[in-house]
Amino acid sequence: MKKVLVVDDEPVIVKMLRRLFEREGFSVSTALNGEAALELMSKDVFNIVITDVIMPKKEGIELITTVKRDFPGTKIIAMSGGGRLSAKGYLRSAKILGADKVFMKPFDHNEMLNAVKELTGDF
């Protein structure tokens, strides 16, 4: 079973993504910030991390950099609803830093699902 780690500071989004992936048979773990995510990653191996870019305690950008460096086998999807800069701006940075795919919130659930399946090779 492929393992997915969902990181977002919005519990409702975390919950929604958990349901989306669990419905499709993924094993889903969640974290509300970058720090908690890294803690989980130190204990378990995840196939993919889906993270928000702007969060309290370790930003998504930092998380992406760390995952890219410490867990090169783990795929990364960045998502953003924008902030001080536009979502596109954040996602462009995320992509440059190594995110495999980026999504602007709100996204189509099927597109997200397909992207995760594609990246984890779970077709």
């Binding site: 902030g83 001080r84 979502a87």
Partner: peptide
């Protein structure tokens, strides 16, 4: 502009589960 950016961010966070759950 900054304010609008902030509001948009919040809004997107609200819209994401609506569209997500709605789709499912």
């Amino acid at each position: 502009g900054t304010l609008a950016g902030g509001i948009a961010h919040e809004f997107n966070n609200v819209l994401t589960p609506i569209i997500g759950y709605g789709g499912m």
